Amino acid sequence: MNQKILAIDIGGTAIKSGLWENEALIELPSFETPKTWDEMKAYLKILVEKNQITDGVAISAPGAVDAEEGVIYGVSAVPYLHRFPIKQELAEFLGVPVSFQNDANCAALAELWQGNAKGLESAALMIIGTGIGGGIAINGKLRPGSNLFGGEFGYQIMNNDTLETLSDLGSPVAMSERFSKIKADGREYTSKEIFDLAEAGDELAQEQINQLYQALSIGIYNILISLDPDRVLIGGGISMREDLLLNIEERVQKLLLKKGAKELKASIMPCKFLNQANLIGAVSQFLTEQA
């Protein structure tokens, strides 16, 4: 049976949307994240009516999403989403079934369903962005954890003295802020500019990128020796850089060898889905709930 589902990915600054129809996603224009919950509901109502959605709305959201309870705990850049029965309220307002799942978990679901984790028994997915999130799959199913912290790899403490986390040291956004602060020339550098400077021989840029790669490699090493998954997938915009994967693979292998875990065969790959991952994963969550 062909279904027409509205897929929504709520971000701190923008909201992506798409239509799932005929087993494929058609992207719709993105729009600025509304300032209030009432504005958000009103905009979703317009999308539902305009696109004649009768089957349902699948939502990828930030925060600690309890998909079953229909409540979003934790904190996020969209504070009005938290700690009330959001799923029930929105379903009643829109008049169609609604599903919610955490954005990083949605990316993991997309890879499990139709991506580079399809058919695997276990996989860990690391999404590298402003912070570092992720997802864990065991027996082919998402494992959100007892407290919805499954896959929150960014919380790993990487420095015993400063208590800096993987999100602090492995995020390209955090690296950009740190580089700009140390450079102190009045400019705010992007991570792409820092990579370009490193290639041109800038020692500070090279040092910061080395720190980024090492933090990510230690994070992945920790995942490998803790979970021993069939595969670790890397997502986020930076995953498109070929040198990222080559550097991380080499560093992880050295860490495994150095620490006596050379028999552990690490399969590290980029995600299949990039910009559409959260939308496709949201649809997967919706279809699972409706099955």
Rank of each mutant, 00 (worst) to 15 (best):
Y73F: 13
A104M: 04
K16T: 01
D103K: 03
Q208V: 00
Q88T: 15
A174G: 05
Y80S: 02
E49G: 06
I209R: 00
L279D: 11
E242K: 03
L224C: 13
T165I: 02
G154I: 11
G135F: 08
L246D: 09
I136Y: 00
L257R: 14
L255V: 01
M40T: 07
L224K: 11
N222E: 13
E203Q: 13
P144A: 13
V96N: 10
A124C: 15
N51I: 06
S180P: 03
Q52A: 15
L274A: 08
A205H: 02
L142H: 02
K262Y: 11
S171I: 05
L81Y: 14
D55I: 03
Q114A: 15
D103V: 01
K141F: 14
A24D: 06
A198M: 01
P62R: 09
A64I: 02
G237K: 07
G281H: 08
A110N: 00
E250I: 01
R83A: 15
S226K: 10
T162Y: 03
K45W: 02
A42C: 04
K258E: 13
L256E: 06
F31C: 08
V71Q: 08
L112S: 09
N2M: 00
K141C: 12
F84Y: 15
L197D: 15
T130M: 05
A261C: 07
I157F: 03
I248E: 07
S76P: 07
P270R: 01
I10R: 00
Q253F: 02
I138P: 09
I53T: 05
Y73D: 04
N51E: 12
I194C: 01
I223Q: 01
C106E: 06
A198P: 08
T190W: 04
G235L: 04
A61V: 13
E207M: 00
F273H: 07
L224W: 07
L90G: 05
K118R: 12
L19M: 03
Q214S: 10
I127F: 10
R83H: 15
N275A: 04
K118E: 12
P229H: 09
L212H: 05
V75M: 10
V65H: 10
L169S: 09
Q208E: 14
S60W: 04
A104G: 08
R231H: 06
Q276L: 02
F93N: 09
I268Q: 11
M126L: 15
L90Y: 10
S176P: 06
A91I: 01
